[in-house]
Nucleic acid binder design. Structure first.
Lengths: 344, 344
DNA sequence: CTGAAAGCGCTAACAA
DNA sequence: TTGTTAGCGCTTTCAG
């Protein structure tokens, strides 16, 4: 059992550094903030003193004095199921990593939709999707806090956002199935309250319609993204009298479930049923048949989000006029082994 | 396109409230901090003014003045694979929710093991596991910052921690298999650099040894928790000349992979192979055979962690002597359908 | 029960 | 290039 001695409880401040270095606190402040106008020998004295005292400036004092904050809040609506999604973790991972790189503090805020955010003290906010909490965004904008919405393309508000082109991604997926000769293509949707799921549904419909294939409601199975509902949908789908030959599934984890169900029911993948997922979840690689899917650039999205937020924050500092950027990142098809070329 | 007018850029402060309420800022401060010694009519005037002005105290000023901080940092070592684990998300979810309840700000810090944490400004730190970053903990302790380690039982440091009794959990699992009549029990480990995986391995060995069954190295497959390595282990396991009749797998996601492999190789679960996992990952429920597993109280762990940290923080405020609490949470067996009673 | 005043640690004019 | 000084918004003695 090792015991560590407490350091002196008195926190060391810029004053102590100034005294030790034999300069004024202003000079110390200048060195800390990398002002160019400090004579080299003074700079060195200060740097030495800082190291000797292991001085770390108080972020609170800095923020109080400057009125600025390098805290970025990541607001994630705590709706049912987000937390079992590949998406949430990838996003947190991406944003966490980027914030570290930009020296931003990441405040994680799992919000109840009805909460009012405590806005004071945040330098900027990233909204991960917007599900029933648009009022939080609106409040933040009114309070003039830089905001970026991620995973949701916002048309009706003057706010920066970075989304993924779900509709086009879905179209590509379905077009691919069509190109393999499939005509009877089913779709298992995600939770349609999310923009992602509903745009994927739109893409599915658009691809079929462009080929003059009617969208049959029996082929559309609406779910909440859960594996349980995917399982049920898959069972219904396979038991149909004229089952589809292919299915486009709105997430990889559901697609894997569909695969499992098919196998349990004695169907071969891809011979009896072709499957395309959405996400590019690494789990898709492990099964006996690698899943063909649509890759969502989640980490890229996180990256663009933080970059944009950072830009808005510096813009605000220099008091330039606000301008807003709306980014739509492309999704791309990743062809693996879960789809079969139909002989025509 | 809706545009929101910016509010007055001047932030409203305690002064404004004081002026509007016709009292001194001190009184306002007292009301904010719920001091009992304010006359009711003054209190009401202040509360009204606060509401009218939508005043929110500046956390920075508060922290600067009090020297305290309600920021809790969650430090997660960014080692390969953490982020594909059930564990990480559950933990973040638990801690995120609890912090919200306790009105603590959650700073998420995905740390490169070699980073030095910027400690100033954090009121307390939760270390999620400790993998090559013990120095960060030691630094924090030296700086007298309240720390709690979670998911790792720390013996050699005078620090609060809350872990899960992985060894006992594993023993229970293996004992259960033994009680069903299994003698040839294999084990697929997780990444043995983690305490969890290595304690589960210990538990596996202990259970066998207590029954005087030798631990055979051919039956032990070491992995890094990934599904890929689980797959490989499962294949080797099943192809053995004298294959085990049961396997204890160190995580549910790997156990599911083992199940899948077994099925692909024409084996029936549980008839040809009994499987016990670890985690109680909801995914285990969905397959054709529900997975028997050991439930880890992750959310409970998060809860205990935050509570303990909160306790340490208030202890520090009142300058009581520091005392440390080491908690070990029990894991429990969840029997479902993936194990078979062997006829003896 | 209330208020005046002295900081908390730092930054940013403004002078020198 | 450097130092003096006045805040940033709040808490906290200490008188009243």
């Amino acid at each position: 059992m090792v015991r560590y001695r407490k350091g002196p409880s008195k926190t060391i401040s810029i004053k102590d550094v100034a005294r030790l270095a034999g300069v004024s606190i202003t000079t110390v402040s200048r060195v800390i903030n990398k002002f160019p106008s400090v004579k080299e020998n003074n700079r060195i004295k200060v740097v030495d003193a800082v190291q000797q005292l292991k001085f770390q400036p108080s972020v609170f004092a800095q923020r109080l004095a400057t009125g600025q904050s390098n805290v970025v809040a990541l607001v994630i609506p705590r709706y049912e199921g987000v937390f079992y999604s590949f998406y949430a973790l990838e996003l947190i991972r991406g944003i966490g990593t980027l914030c570290a790189a930009f020296k931003l503090d990441l405040l994680l805020h799992l919000t109840d939709t009805r909460d009012t955010l405590n806005l004071k003290g945040t330098g900027g906010i990233i909204f991960a999707d917007l599900i029933g909490n648009k009022h939080q965004l609106v409040d933040a904008m009114k309070a003039d806090i830089p905001c970026v919405v991620v995973n949701n393309y916002i048309d009706d508000l003057d706010v920066s956002c970075v989304g993924i082109d779900n509709k086009n991604g879905a179209e590509i997926a379905v077009r691919y199935l069509l190109s393999l000769g499939h005509k009877k293509i089913a779709h298992i949707t995600g939770d349609l309250v999310t923009q992602a799921a509903s745009m994927r549904f739109e893409g599915y419909k658009a691809a079929l319609e462009k080929k003059n294939i009617a969208v049959k409601s029996e082929y559309v199975f609406k779910t909440d993204y859960s594996r349980g509902q995917a399982r049920q949908a898959a069972q219904e789908l396979i038991k149909m009298s004229k089952p589809a030959t292919a299915v486009f599934v709105s997430s990889d984890s559901m697609a894997l479930e569909v695969m499992a169900v098919a196998r349990e029911m004695g169907k071969k993948i891809p011979d009896d049923l072709s499957i395309v997922g959405f996400d590019d979840n690494p789990s898709g690689l492990y099964g006996p048949v690698a899943l063909t899917t649509v890759k969502q650039p989640l980490v890229k999205m996180a990256e663009e989000g933080i970059k944009e937020l950072n830009r808005l924050i510096s813009l605000k500092k220099s008091k330039q006029s606000k301008n807003v950027k709306k980014i739509l990142l492309p999704a791309e098809l990743v062809v693996r082994d879960s789809c079969k070329l139909l002989r025509r």
